[in-house]
Design a protein around this nucleic acid. Structure first.
Length: 286
DNA sequence: AATGGGCCCAACCGCGACTTT
DNA sequence: TAAAGTCGCGGTTGGGCCCAT
């Protein structure tokens, strides 16, 4: 049976409209799923699909969340060091991708599996003489006898998937991840956090916070850039009794529940840190 | 400029394991 | 204990992009 393109899925009336959708996820579906899970969590995946108003299987929702929407995923290409880890773990664990992924924070089993299948395995086969050295791993016809492009694979891994953003005539560019940002403020003996989603639906937000010991502040966080992706900066405007402002990416926020030390490490490493005395607007280039 | 081939990756499929009733 | 439902994993596929010709 041939799948209909997603754009034609509604063409057949009610019965057709109730059919499960397959294929690529639209930005709207992503947002529905993301909002549902971040607000209400997951009871069962099939209920998530239903309650989010998605014509997707629970399985599909789970996959989309685990492999793409989950905010703790790393978006940068797999590094040389990570590649070495993959090779080493694969050697000791075999193709137990979920176990390997579990040892590599921010990476998914699918991502690692794809990386292995498309790059490492191929390279290893080539260096082993172009044969199917490790059993039947190599697919028939997958390895041209002289694939001299193999040596550029590592470079290709560094490419940003920005090409699809430039077009966007019909479908808006899908962000690699919903870019959420936050300010965390320290002052008056307490701390407060404001979070904004920039670039997709909400461009900015303002929160009135009580900073612990009676000190109150208005916090604004937003996307000051062009499209929320490139050449952008994010601003954090505060009014009130604030000693210090930290601008956080959502990645940083995710570390928060795990412990303040991790969060501070992220700030320090990324330089997303600004001492602040009094009311001001701070901009941070990203 | 057109086109064909290769590569990458998102998503689907099938199956086994686990949980609930 | 068995059946049904759900989850999670690994393998595979299909579509889009890029590049060489």
């Amino acid at each position: 049976m041939v799948e209909k393109p997603a754009s034609q899925a509604n063409a057949g009336g009610d019965v057709e409209a109730r059919k499960e959708r397959k294929g690529l996820w639209s930005p709207e579906e992503d947002e529905r799923l993301y909002t549902r899970i971040t607000r209400h969590g997951v009871s069962t995946w099939s209920s998530v699909a239903q309650l989010a108003g998605l014509r997707r299987s629970g399985k599909s929702c789970r996959l989309r969340w685990m492999n793409y929407l989950r905010p703790d995923l790393k978006k940068e290409p797999i590094s040389k060091r990570e590649e070495e880890t993959i090779i080493s773990l694969q050697k000791s664990l075999g193709n137990r991708w979920s176990v390997i992924a579990g040892k590599m924070p921010g990476r998914t089993d699918n991502e690692i599996k794809n990386y292995w299948n498309s790059r490492i395995r191929k390279r290893q086969n080539i260096s082993a003489g172009g044969g199917k050295g490790d059993g039947e791993l190599a697919k028939q016809g997958d390895l041209p006898a002289a694939d001299d492009k193999a040596n550029v694979l590592a470079v290709a891994g560094g490419m940003e998937p920005v090409s699809s953003m430039a077009t966007g005539a019909t479908a808006p560019p899908v962000p690699t991840r919903f870019p959420l940002f936050a300010c965390q403020l320290f002052g008056g003996g307490g701390e407060a956090t404001a979070v904004a989603a920039a670039g997709t639906t909400a461009e900015s937000t303002t929160t009135h916070e009580n900073n612990g010991a009676g000190s109150e502040s208005d916090v604004s966080v937003g996307n000051g850039g062009q499209d929320g992706r490139e050449g952008h900066y994010y601003y954090c405007a505060v009014e009130g009794d604030i000693d210090m402002v930290h601008l956080m990416s959502f990645d940083d926020l995710l570390e928060y529940p795990a412990g303040g030390d991790l969060l501070m490490d992220a700030w320090d490493q990324n330089g997303l840190y600004s001492a602040n005395t009094g009311s001001s607007v701070d901009s941070f280039g990203c």
